[in-house]
Amino acid sequence: MSRLPIERRNAPSQRELLMNRKLTRIVALTLWGCLSAAAMPPRLSIAQQSVTDTNASIAAHRVPTQHLPNAVQVSSQVISGGLPEGEQAFAELQSLGIKTIISVDGAQPDVEMAKRFGLRYVHLPHGYNGISTERTQELAKAVRVLESPIYIHCHHGKHRSPAAAAVACIAAGQIPAADATAILELAGTSRNYQGLYRAAIAAQPIASTTLDALEVDYKSKVDPPPMVEQMIAIEHAHDHLKQFAADAWKASPKHPDLDPAHEALLLREHFTEMLRGEIERQSPEAFLESIRDSRDAAAGLEAAIRSGLPHRARQAFVNRIQANCVACHRRFRDVPLSE
């Protein structure tokens, strides 16, 4: 076999050697950069960081937000928090990547505002005394089948929503049952709400076959019972008055349209409404006594504000109403469902 002739070449010059070395360095740096970029994950938004892996179990942590009270990441798919109020709050939900909002509060959700930002609202209210088996199953199926990420809220985001989120995520198999207490403590859930703690601690994964067979018509709004409706109105007026007291009875920049005397008047009327009709007929006398005293205190607060009495006099009425609320809740509202 004949060999092919080998082309004879002159040895490379010193200049060629330097150029080759420089080119080799450039190629090596370029390849290193490409490989590093390929190896490093892309920067993610808050929502992407939280919800990229639907099966990952994460440690519960606070979510930094400006317009969403007490936001806590409960699972890779679920954030718990307080009521979103106004365009800025819904815009922040949208920026977090939220697709579905679940309200466990009794108040009517702002469905129209949610639609403006492409969000779906689902209303699954429950009380402070715990979460029923039926509601647990509905919440578990919701976080399993509704478009995620999901934001679950109550009013303040401290008690009902973290309990609901923990129960839902545990029952749906998204987080370990052992995480329940830590989630409630992180959110600041008061130990006075024994029913909420019991519901969270007792939560266990529900079989996929059970959730698959469960038929739920998820509505954007449900009508609360008369008692719940009045309690919601009382809570809102009371919250406004407590904020006025904390701000030395000055107008709030957040709610410049609110007037303290008018809020006291509304609170008095809400308490008065509790003493009429079905609520009065079905309530125990001890409960009605607390409502009557709170009504009188609200009337005294209104008079104190209109007559220009100093802060100390007004605060005495606020404290009296607050004490009645705490005692009443402990005796009647927060009793666990199992008792």
Rank of each mutant, 00 (worst) to 15 (best):
N10E: 08
E235G: 03
A299I: 01
Q14I: 06
Q49E: 06
L309E: 15
R9T: 15
H236I: 04
C325Q: 03
I26S: 02
A60D: 09
L119E: 01
M19K: 09
L214R: 15
R306W: 11
L186C: 05
G81P: 00
S252Q: 02
K254S: 02
T272K: 11
T136G: 09
V318Y: 10
H155Y: 13
G97M: 04
P260V: 06
H123Q: 07
K221F: 15
D212P: 12
S190I: 12
L35N: 01
R62L: 13
A91I: 09
A177Y: 05
Q194E: 05
R62E: 14
E185V: 10
I170G: 02
N319C: 14
A114C: 07
Y121S: 10
L83G: 01
A213N: 10
R8E: 07
A165R: 08
Q73N: 11
H238T: 00
E147H: 11
Q137E: 13
V145M: 14
A298W: 00
S148F: 13
S290A: 11
R198Q: 10
V72C: 11
H270G: 01
E185I: 04
A286T: 02
L68Y: 05
R295H: 00
R191L: 13
S76K: 12
T30M: 06
A303G: 05
P310V: 09
C325M: 00
Q174A: 14
L196R: 12
M1Y: 14
R8K: 08
A264K: 08
A172Q: 10
D53I: 13
P42H: 03
H123V: 06
A142Q: 13
I79E: 02
L68N: 03
P42T: 04
S103R: 11
R312N: 13
D105W: 06
V63F: 14
P41H: 02
L96Y: 01
S307P: 10
M113Q: 15
E280W: 11
P162S: 10
K158G: 10
A37W: 01
R320W: 07
T272F: 02
S252M: 01
Q194K: 07
D259V: 12
C34T: 04
Q174D: 14
T209Q: 08
C169I: 05
E273G: 03
A91Y: 09
F317C: 10
S294E: 04
R333P: 09
G308L: 11
A28R: 05
G81V: 00
L309K: 14
A297I: 03
L214M: 15
E302S: 04
A286E: 05
E185H: 06
S338K: 02
A207K: 07
R330S: 10
R276H: 15
A316Q: 14
R268T: 04
L301I: 11
I234M: 00
E285L: 00
A187W: 11
L23Q: 00
T133E: 06
P12C: 03
Q49D: 08
E289M: 03
R3N: 07
C34L: 01
R25L: 06
G127N: 10
A245Q: 05
Q49N: 08
G188N: 07
M1F: 13
V111K: 09
R312E: 15
A303S: 08
C34Q: 05
V72N: 12
S283M: 14
Q66F: 09
S290L: 01
